Amino acid sequence: MTIAEQAQSVYADVKRIRTHPLVPPEILIYGYLYDVKTGKLIEIPEATQVGQAS
Rank of each mutant, 00 (worst) to 15 (best):
Y11E: 10
E26F: 12
I3D: 01
S9A: 13
Q49S: 07
A47R: 04
S54M: 11
P45V: 05
Q8V: 05
I17D: 00
G31F: 09
L41K: 14
L33G: 05
Q49E: 15
D35P: 01
P21I: 00
E5R: 10
Q8H: 05
E26G: 01
E43I: 07
L33T: 04
T38P: 12
L41D: 12
Y11N: 02
Y32P: 03
H20P: 00
P45W: 10
R18M: 05
Q49P: 00
V10L: 07
V23P: 00
D35F: 06
Y11L: 15
M1N: 09
K15G: 02
E43T: 15
R18W: 03
T19G: 07
A4S: 09
K37R: 14
T38R: 04
A47M: 10
Y34D: 02
A47H: 03
I3A: 05
P25N: 11
E5A: 12
E43V: 04
M1W: 07
I44R: 08
P25A: 09
R18V: 07
L22V: 07
K37P: 01
V23Q: 09
T38Q: 03
L28Y: 03
Q6H: 07
P24V: 05
D13M: 13
E5L: 08
L28F: 09
Y11C: 03
V36T: 14
R16S: 13
V50Q: 13
E26T: 07
D35K: 10
T19W: 00
S9Y: 11
V23T: 09
Y11D: 02
H20M: 01
I42A: 12
P24S: 05
E5K: 10
D35H: 10
G51M: 02
S54W: 13
Q52K: 15
K37H: 10
T48D: 04
I17P: 00
P25W: 00
H20K: 03
D35C: 06
E46F: 01
E46K: 10
I42V: 15
G31T: 03
I27G: 00
A53Q: 14
A53N: 07
Q6D: 05
K37E: 13
P25V: 04
S54E: 15
G39Y: 03
A53P: 03
E43R: 13
Y11M: 12
D35Y: 05
G31H: 08
